[in-house]
Design a protein around this nucleic acid. Structure first.
Lengths: 247, 247
DNA sequence: GCGTACGCTAGTGTCGACACTGTCAAGACG
DNA sequence: CGTCTTGACAGTGTCGACACTAGCGTACGC
């Protein structure tokens, strides 16, 4: 049940507008959203012939779209080998969250310095509507609002390099979202974190904001880890290991 | 006078090994090193036909190589327009250094936590040989040693996400290197900074290390800014403005 | 029965051709 | 004399074809 804004947000996150032909953009959006929504499983082959048939194009634009997604960490490509949906290891995931924590803390600090009062009230408005979505347990809508909130914050801060990196990291974590926010109760915790954050911004307390971000990120990672353990515990015993010898 | 290790380091920074065909790698290395060494000027057109002639290939691998460099911020591509060598604005440069400062501080903190004594002595050895290069005013060799030092540090820390981002940022700053380290005296300052850093690592003082990194990065940015001002002051009056209205 | 060598096939990387579009210059028009 | 239109050309995006290779099943040797 993908949220209807998915393709639009993806288009922005991948910076497709004006940077790529519509054809490439279309393919990248389809594959990218497929990975994020779980329609395409980690490790699955992304046969470029099949994709070109599906979109009734040649393989050239398909290759280009896959290369785009590779750079965002959603797809793994090795020369002469079939592209696959990325399947990050637990260590990879930890690394990503660690960097993300640092950069989000940086974002918070800059936001406290630079955001106007009007911008802060706008952010508060966003968080309040996220509270509604969390109450309705509308996971998809909540998640995309979350992404858009971060997008808006990076926009306010105005550091394009930071924005691009955070967007890329957001995409990587996005493909884990069914592992984190779907856990019951996570949504409520998450929105609580956001509210506290906004308050710290309004009080212009950069230290507090950074600390809150760090805490929230750690909790998000922990949720992902727990979910991952459950998943492997559920799928491993039957012997359906994706790869690696079962010895 | 490019340093002889340039292509090898570039190959690692661009993660070309096994990820791309040798043909693509070759083109990416040539163009990438050209940009870094100043053989290709910012804003210059990167005609894919001309490049394909130069390498006696079709345009397909050329396009792929250019896309690779685009993702590293060395090349700018817009759909249906000729690819150009990136010409970052002053604001872009400031943004890059700001993010880089933050991530290098993170790197320093992790290094203090995780590096073994042996690894630290290895790093010290590298810095000492950099001191020699600085004394000889061998700017190119110094610069590539600097890059390799950072590479090694990210390797020791072992966070691949952090490594990739820092590599990418290093490439972007690399194309500004003739703007920063060529300034007389900069080399000596830079190596001083590195020595103080190593000492902080050895004393396991993460706070100090982060602070030193931040200071060093700020100084590097300032050097770039001053050089940029001189350049524009020298080239603008004749009326060779690249773009933007002179009002 | 187990491991290895061989051959087939699906899929990748590269190519040259073609249609379309941005770009620049010469000419038309005021 | 300056501005706008027009047209040619250069360069891009896409295509279908081809050579080559990785992956896999089969047959063979042991």
């Amino acid at each position: 049940m993908p949220h209807q804004d998915t393709p639009l947000v993806l288009e922005r996150l991948l910076r497709l507008r004006d940077r790529r032909e519509p054809l490439v953009a279309q393919i990248a959006e389809w594959v990218g959203s497929g990975i994020i929504e779980g329609r395409l499983q980690p490790g699955q082959d992304l046969n470029s012939v099949e994709l070109s048939n599906r979109f009734e194009t040649s393989r050239t634009p398909v290759r280009e779209a896959l290369m785009l997604l590779e750079q965002e960490g959603l797809v793994e490509m090795k020369a002469r080998r079939r592209p696959r949906v990325a399947s990050p290891s637990l260590q990879d995931i930890r690394d990503i969250y660690q960097v993300r924590r640092q950069l989000l803390a940086m974002l918070a600090g800059l936001l406290v310095e630079r955001a106007t009062e009007d911008e802060l009230t706008e952010l508060r408005g966003r968080v309040e509507s996220m509270r509604d979505l969390a109450d309705k347990e509308d996971v998809d809508a909540y998640f995309w609002s979350h992404v858009q909130l971060q997008e808006r914050m990076t926009e306010i801060v105005g550091n394009t390099t930071l924005k691009q990196i955070l967007d890329s990291l957001a995409l990587r974590t996005l493909m884990l979202r069914h592992l984190s926010l779907t856990r019951t109760g996570r949504l409520a915790y998450s929105v609580d974190d956001q509210e506290r954050l906004i308050q710290a911004y309004e009080e212009r307390d950069g230290e507090l904001a950074s600390a809150l971000i760090a805490g929230a990120t750690v909790r998000a990672l922990r949720a992902v880890e727990e979910q991952l353990e459950q998943d492997t515990a559920r799928t491993r015993p039957p012997g359906r290991a994706k790869r690696g010898r079962t010895s």
